[in-house]
């Protein structure tokens, strides 16, 4: 069995901005451990010399010209917002500065 603990699952939930009930924490600890156990086949491999692949194809230097294109209408943009004020998106108070 994977060594995944309930505390780790709680920490991950915090990172992911999810609130899990005690029952969910228990359930997820078991289920995630089971999935991670399945990954054990992979973890036992010695792949030290293998290059990681993040992209299936080796395209490079895909760029666009620095030419202005139309932006959206602000009314349309703010119509999507759960809350807006004074041309801006409104949110409840922010507890700290950006990291």
């Amino acid at each position: 069995m994977s060594e995944l603990t309930r505390a780790e699952v709680a920490h991950v939930a915090k990172l992911a901005r999810l609130r899990l009930s005690d029952d969910e924490l228990d359930l997820f600890t078991v289920q995630l451990a089971k999935i991670l156990d399945h990954a054990a086949d992979m973890q036992s491999l010695d792949l030290a010399d293998v290059v990681a692949t993040a992209h299936p194809y080796g395209l490079i230097n895909v760029v666009r010209d620095d030419v202005v294109r139309p932006s959206l209408e602000r009314d349309e943009v703010l119509a999507m917002a759960p809350d807006a004020e004074d041309g801006r998106f409104a949110v409840p108070r922010i507890m700290g500065e950006a990291p």
Binding site: V67, S71, V77
Partner: peptide, 30 residues
């Protein structure tokens, strides 16, 4: 392709990409 300007009216230089709307994708400015 939204204009990079300082001092425009709020939220008038935004599009699906720079608003992070679902499904939008970034393309790098040369």
């Amino acid at each position: 392709g939204c204009a990079n300007v300082f001092g425009a009216e709020p939220n008038t230089r935004v599009c699906p990409v720079c608003l992070g709307l679902p499904g939008s994708l970034p393309v790098l400015n040369e």
